[in-house]
Amino acid sequence: MTIDRRCSGISDRRDLLTEKTLDAETRTSESSKNDNSENTHEKLTTDSFNQQLVQANENLIIASIKCQTIAENLEKSSAQMIHLANHDFLTELPNRMQLNDRIGQAILLAKRDKSRLAVLFLDLDKFKAVNDSYGHGMGDKLLQSVAARLQNAIRSSDTASRQGGDEFILLLSNIGDKDSLCRTIKEIQQIISASYLIAETNICIGSAIGVSVFPEHGEDTQTLIHCADIAMYYAKQRGPNQYEIFNPDIHNASTAGLE
């Protein structure tokens, strides 16, 4: 009986030990599963955050590029608007506003340096006949060709401007004596009167040029332009390819004609 009881007690203790071992293993397994589940959740959370961060960075880069593009387009548009505000749309020459500014600056420099400048008011001969015979499209191309020749005929420090229609104004700074000025005017007229080949058509025109000189004929922009304009009309009355330098007699005659 004693031995049986002892054997039975040992068996019971073994069974109890087995149960505790199994229970411990079960708890360990469940704990491991919980840990794995938590790790998996943390990994998924980290991966999701990283993906969101990458997407946010990409969105930021795209937004930065778009902002830069918008800024560049605005800068280009601003530059184009400034250019259009200061240049003739057909010939790309400076317009009246820019010409007036340049004459004003040239006058200040001439006063400082005690030099002289000339304003040439140029009107094309036979331009109306070109428009009437070949159409305004041909006339526009002729004006563009004239503008290109004028730019090539003067120095980089001078200015060629279109006033409108077939009228142009040239600003010649730091001119020499009267003989030198007359030679320059004749050279310009020769360049303008050379034949033009436009759309397989030879076109010949001339020019009438009126000239005013600072400081003899005026000390401000509008006076110099006005005097050159008066002289140009007198040159035109004398025939094709003529020029006239303003003088008081011309001014007095034009004033008398208005009385």
Rank of each mutant, 00 (worst) to 15 (best):
S156T: 15
L171D: 01
T159I: 02
T159N: 02
H136F: 02
L120T: 10
N174I: 07
T184E: 11
D101T: 11
V130A: 00
D113W: 07
L117F: 08
A199T: 12
G176L: 04
R116A: 10
G165S: 09
A106N: 10
G164I: 03
D101L: 07
K141V: 03
D166N: 03
L172M: 12
S145M: 12
L170N: 03
S161F: 02
P94D: 12
R116E: 07
L172H: 08
R149V: 04
L143F: 00
Q189D: 03
D166C: 02
D125C: 06
I169T: 10
D179N: 10
R96Q: 11
I192S: 06
I154V: 15
E167A: 03
T201C: 10
A106G: 08
L93I: 04
N100F: 03
A153H: 13
D140A: 09
L120V: 09
S133T: 15
S145Q: 14
L172T: 04
L150N: 08
G176S: 14
A199E: 15
N202R: 07
R155C: 08
A148F: 10
R112N: 08
L170D: 04
N174T: 12
K114Q: 15
K126C: 05
I198L: 15
K128G: 01
N152K: 12
K114R: 14
A194S: 15
S145I: 04
L120W: 04
I175K: 11
D140T: 05
D166V: 00
S161T: 13
Q151M: 12
L93G: 03
Q144H: 04
N174L: 01
D177H: 10
S173F: 02
D158S: 05
K111R: 15
G135Q: 05
S156M: 14
R102F: 07
L99E: 09
D166K: 01
E200M: 05
D158N: 07
A148P: 05
Q189M: 15
K126R: 13
I188C: 00
G137H: 04
A110P: 04
K128N: 04
S195A: 12
M97C: 09
S145T: 12
L122D: 06
K111V: 13
K178G: 04
A148W: 01
R183V: 06
A148H: 12
N152C: 10
Q190S: 15
G176D: 13
K186C: 02
E187A: 13
T184Y: 01
K114C: 13
V130Y: 00
D113S: 14
I154K: 13
M138S: 01
E167F: 02
R116L: 03
G139M: 02
E200R: 08
I203N: 07
A153I: 12
A194F: 10
D113V: 11
V146T: 04
T201I: 10
A153K: 13
Q189W: 05
G165L: 10
G165V: 09
K178Q: 14
L181G: 02
K178T: 14
L181M: 00
V119A: 14
N152Q: 14
I191Y: 11
G139S: 01
K111W: 05
